[in-house]
Design a protein around this nucleic acid. Structure first.
Lengths: 208, 208
DNA sequence: TTTAAATTTAAACAGTTGTTTAATTTATTT
DNA sequence: AAATAAATTAAACAACTGTTTAAATTTAAA
């Protein structure tokens, strides 16, 4: 897996990712990034042009290979519901592993009006939706899934559930007694993932 | 419905709410607020103490009466599933009407470490969870709801779905052809609300 | 009307912000 | 080894940040 960024750029990108996720885009200064990445503050402008463009590069860096993974999933020899379950697992795993890219993606990037790469991001989301749609239609033609479901609203339920949980991390750590980071991550990987799979399955199969 | 804030304070609070929702807490300056509210920049410190305390006051101002509404819902003479549907409607309506308080609540306030009013906010969330729990347990003892559901994860699904949809507003406006603000809000009030109700109902009633 | 309290103001404070500059060091090519 | 290109640096830039001050104005109480 090669990338368009050199080693130094990648260091900057990953430091920026962590800090943006922790303190937000506006809450993070170029000096913060430079200090953490042990580089001169001018290097960000030198390599990326500006702080905004650094953000755009970060999105690109983190989302470029998601489409491939989804395409591979679709052609696997699995029952539709198994594909859905794997898709959910894939999403959560990616988001949870990539530190805080999700927050950045949906809260910093969306609120910036720079139409430049926002379009590319929109295309990515459309592609993801198409993948999901093809799985669900497959299930519908096989007579397994119900047909009156609003497909574009399923992604919000999958991602939104995870995200809301994650944004209220401290609250749920207290409530569910997940004192260590490991316990918390493990809860996401098992219980939360299961909850989402269970929810989507119920939605797709339930007949009123 | 009286409040602890005077007229001028309320103007400041509501301007701050709009701007925080639009540009984020860090992205909004006291000078922005002052200009929009047509007051001197010193008035924020004068009335609220600091920018952070203004945020805390805003949370207080917007969440103080939610608990009462939930308590009233619980004692209504309705079937459990009807109560759940009403609860979902109540949530979405509140969040959608109060401009962008939701974003502020879960993204700005959660990431600030000020332990002062964060505790109070946590108590509010715990109270909301207790309300939901009592409805679900009622449905379980009546034999209508399944018993292996993880109750604390239902709120993330309800709120997360709405929120994810709303955060990707422009994307869904394009995708679903909701050109005007009215069309968009109407879609939330009907289709999105219905989707969430349908999802939670399926989750609670479906037997694998 | 005088006095006291509350409100509003402009100005200044000390930091921080993103970005650019020009000089210097390091790496690559001729 | 010399020349060229790329990378890195410290310093400066003007603009903006939240907050405080002390004086001016308005409102309320005596």
């Amino acid at each position: 897996m090669k990338s368009n960024f050199n080693d130094k750029q990648i260091i900057i990108l990953e430091v920026a990712e962590t800090l943006f996720a922790e303190k937000g885009f506006d809450g993070t200064s170029i000096r913060n990034i430079a200090k953490e990445a042990k580089i001169n503050i001018a290097m960000v402008s030198y390599y990326f042009g500006s702080k905004e463009k650094l953000l755009e590069s970060l999105i690109l860096y983190r989302t470029s290979d998601l489409k491939i993974q989804l395409d591979n999933l679709i052609i696997e020899d699995l029952e539709p519901i198994e594909k859905i379950n794997k898709l959910i697992e894939l999403y959560i795993n990616r988001i949870n592993c990539n530190k805080g890219i999700y927050r950045i993606l949906h809260f910093e990037f969306t609120s910036k009006k720079g139409d430049s790469n926002l379009q590319a991001f929109s295309e990515l989301k459309k592609g993801n939706l198409k993948s999901l749609e093809s799985i669900i239609i497959e299930g519908q033609t096989k007579g397994i899934f119900r047909k009156d479901v609003i497909i574009p609203l399923i992604t919000p339920t999958i991602l939104g559930t995870f995200f809301h949980f994650h944004m209220n991390k401290t609250f749920f750590q207290n409530l569910l007694n997940l004192k260590t980071e490991d316990l918390y991550n493990n809860y996401i990987k098992t219980n939360l993932t299961l909850h989402i799979q269970q929810t989507i399955k119920a939605l797709l199969i339930y007949e009123s």
